[in-house]
Amino acid sequence: MLKNQRVVVSDGAMATELEKMGVQTDNELWSAMALITNPDAIRAVHEGYFMAGATIATTNTYQANLPALADFDVDQEAGLQLIHDAVKLADQARAGDDRLLIAGSVGPYGAYLADGSEYTGDYHLSKADYQAFHLPRIQALVAAGVDCLALETMPNFAEVQALLALLQRDFPTVRVWVSFSVGDTPANLCDGTPLREAAQYCDAQENVLAVGVNCTKMENILPAINEIHGVTDKAIIVYPNNGDRYDPTTKTWEKVTDAPQFSELVPQWLAAGARIIGGCCRTTPDDIATIKASVDQYLAG
């Protein structure tokens, strides 16, 4: 992924753009509902991010796990087909350009619970149960031809350990990035695990291509990079929210008018060691275009 590029720009939010197209995401499937109701809109979102300068499209499968789909009367065969379709929609958006990449999104078990625990990490399964929950989606993503997997917004270190063990066992040649969810203190994962410890663990995994954080406020990114930089030779990936505040209890966003701007912060993240930069919740193609311009200016300077 980084072989011929010093820095890679990833995409931004899926749900935000779908909502602009009138797609309902206010449900427990979140943006994955569009796989059922409006797949053309998903392809259009991917196209918009590629046009804005992203090199990576992240599949709309963060919440598309089989138990969540089953709650909406989607059986296993149909659910696996929807995951396969999500990859094909991203592939159609890149229109044969092999410089563009597809990352298969794998959200945490806490996202399936839909109770805010993806922001706390306060859930506990056995290693085998974590693996059983995630395996069908991972199998479908790999079979559909993703370029890598993205373990995203991961708040629970035990879950990540179980997933990396699963990948090493069953998919040893598949590359993956791990992006953690950090709390108000960016030095720790949401479950309290030191970010430095988690990053160091990922550094020892041969199939991990990048490690970082996502779905956090922009002010947390530089401290998080500084925690990671000293303990890994992997690429550092960061993709924060746009600055608005999320209330996991009411599942609503509060607009923040004085939030910092990507144009101000991206050069700092690059100087600190970030190699893959994108956006998470509430970010738009305009934000990705800003990131791309900031990266280009930094590299040219």
Results as ranks from 00 to 15, higher is better:
residue 255 K to F: 11
residue 11 D to F: 01
residue 169 R to M: 06
residue 50 F to D: 05
residue 174 V to G: 04
residue 198 A to I: 02
residue 171 F to T: 10
residue 84 H to I: 04
residue 44 A to Y: 07
residue 248 P to E: 00
residue 215 C to A: 12
residue 134 H to S: 08
residue 141 L to R: 01
residue 16 T to V: 07
residue 263 S to H: 14
residue 49 Y to N: 09
residue 288 I to W: 12
residue 196 R to A: 15
residue 168 Q to R: 09
residue 82 L to E: 05
residue 172 P to I: 02
residue 13 A to I: 05
residue 155 P to I: 02
residue 183 G to Q: 14
residue 240 P to V: 08
residue 22 G to H: 08
residue 250 T to H: 13
residue 182 V to W: 05
residue 275 R to L: 09
residue 191 D to P: 06
residue 237 I to F: 14
residue 88 K to F: 06
residue 264 E to H: 09
residue 275 R to Q: 15
residue 76 Q to T: 13
residue 30 W to V: 01
residue 257 T to A: 10
residue 6 R to K: 15
residue 132 A to G: 05
residue 89 L to P: 07
residue 86 A to W: 00
residue 224 A to V: 02
residue 208 V to I: 13
residue 12 G to C: 09
residue 300 A to Q: 15
residue 271 A to S: 15
residue 199 A to M: 06
residue 137 R to I: 01
residue 157 F to N: 10
residue 244 D to A: 03
residue 96 G to T: 02
residue 177 W to L: 09
residue 163 L to P: 00
residue 184 D to P: 12
residue 282 R to I: 06
residue 183 G to R: 10
residue 124 H to V: 02
residue 167 L to C: 11
residue 58 T to N: 13
residue 2 L to K: 05
residue 175 R to T: 12
residue 267 P to A: 12
residue 138 I to K: 07
residue 250 T to G: 05
residue 209 L to M: 15
residue 132 A to P: 05
residue 172 P to H: 00
residue 156 N to F: 02
residue 208 V to K: 07
residue 126 S to D: 15
residue 136 P to W: 03
residue 81 Q to R: 14
residue 190 C to H: 02
residue 5 Q to F: 01
residue 285 P to L: 00
residue 290 T to Q: 10
residue 132 A to E: 11
residue 220 N to M: 04
residue 259 A to Q: 11
residue 105 S to H: 04
residue 220 N to T: 11
residue 209 L to I: 15
residue 41 A to C: 12
residue 36 I to F: 05
